[in-house]
Design a protein around this nucleic acid. Structure first.
Lengths: 148, 148
DNA sequence: CTCCTTATTGACAATAATTTTCAATAATAA
DNA sequence: TTATTATTGAAAATTATTGTCAATAAGGAG
């Protein structure tokens, strides 16, 4: 979890200004222990700084994504979810999605093995398709314990 | 690629009626060689049977998904895409998504190795989280050849 | 510290995908 | 053939996201 300075530096270095909404949104994402929807981020931000607009949350989250600091997920319920990629509390993980109730479990079990394989695949895909691969996602879909 | 009878049986067995829109949509999905957005399906359906409504495409595609015959993908551009899971021309594959232009490449290279590993992981996750896993997705995100 | 430039913001309007509503239609069982 | 009722199409409603634009405030220059 990186501090204010770190973020300040990265923003400024790219010519972006450091603003209260941006700092607040980064803080909310840093404190979160899971991927948040825009509305969830917005609600948390309001607790810290009422007055920040929803539009700004959309814009900031997209900015952070373009900067490569935030990952965007879509699990199929129509909401986009965001999560810090760098400076996050959470280690790298993959997802288990319940297609009935929408529950999402982040699992870290076996991720190491997965990642080893994925890197190999990644290298080969990079060559074959001349794709510059930045990251990956694995989702398992199914029915959770409570839903069955 | 399964025929009319097969689909007819599956629909009827679950108490659903076999209708012209449903048959047409299934046919479009069967003939497709890639995942289609609802609008793409709709356009193809119209060529075969003008008069079918967009709403019906949404409903049918969702029905097929609940029945487990169709996979839904979201690649991050705000559109849902659908693809036959059973009875499709296409073999099992995973995806390479360009985050700049949105291009999606389906790759089948190395999928066998991936699937072997995923099955192992799947079994263990099933035990640990008591999740009934139905399927999985792997997405690699990056920049495609033309975009860099 | 103060002024100036301009990136950023918030409120609101606009868009776009999807869902809901509901009367009309058509698939199946009797 | 008729009755039942799932399904449909059209239009309205909803919901997430994006665009517009005047007001604000961050940060460099003086």
């Amino acid at each position: 979890m990186y501090g204010r300075h770190w973020w300040h530096g990265h923003l400024r270095r790219r010519g972006y200004r450091v603003t209260v909404p941006r700092e607040t949104i980064i803080q909310v994402l840093s404190d979160a222990d899971k991927h948040l929807s825009v509305e969830e981020i917005f609600n948390e931000v309001l607790k810290l700084h009422p007055g920040v607009g929803l539009t700004t949350v959309y814009r900031t989250v997209e900015l952070l994504r373009n900067m490569g600091f935030v990952k965007k997920y879509e699990f199929g319920d129509g909401l986009s979810r965001y999560e810090l990629e760098k400076g996050s509390k959470k280690p790298h993980h993959h997802h288990l999605v319940c297609t009935r109730c929408g529950k999402i479990i982040d699992y870290t079990d076996f991720v190491d093995e997965e990642v080893v394989l994925l890197r190999k695949v990644e290298n080969r895909l990079t060559k074959k398709y001349k794709f510059d691969i930045k990251n990956h996602q694995i989702h398992f879909y199914g029915i959770c314990d409570e839903c069955k």
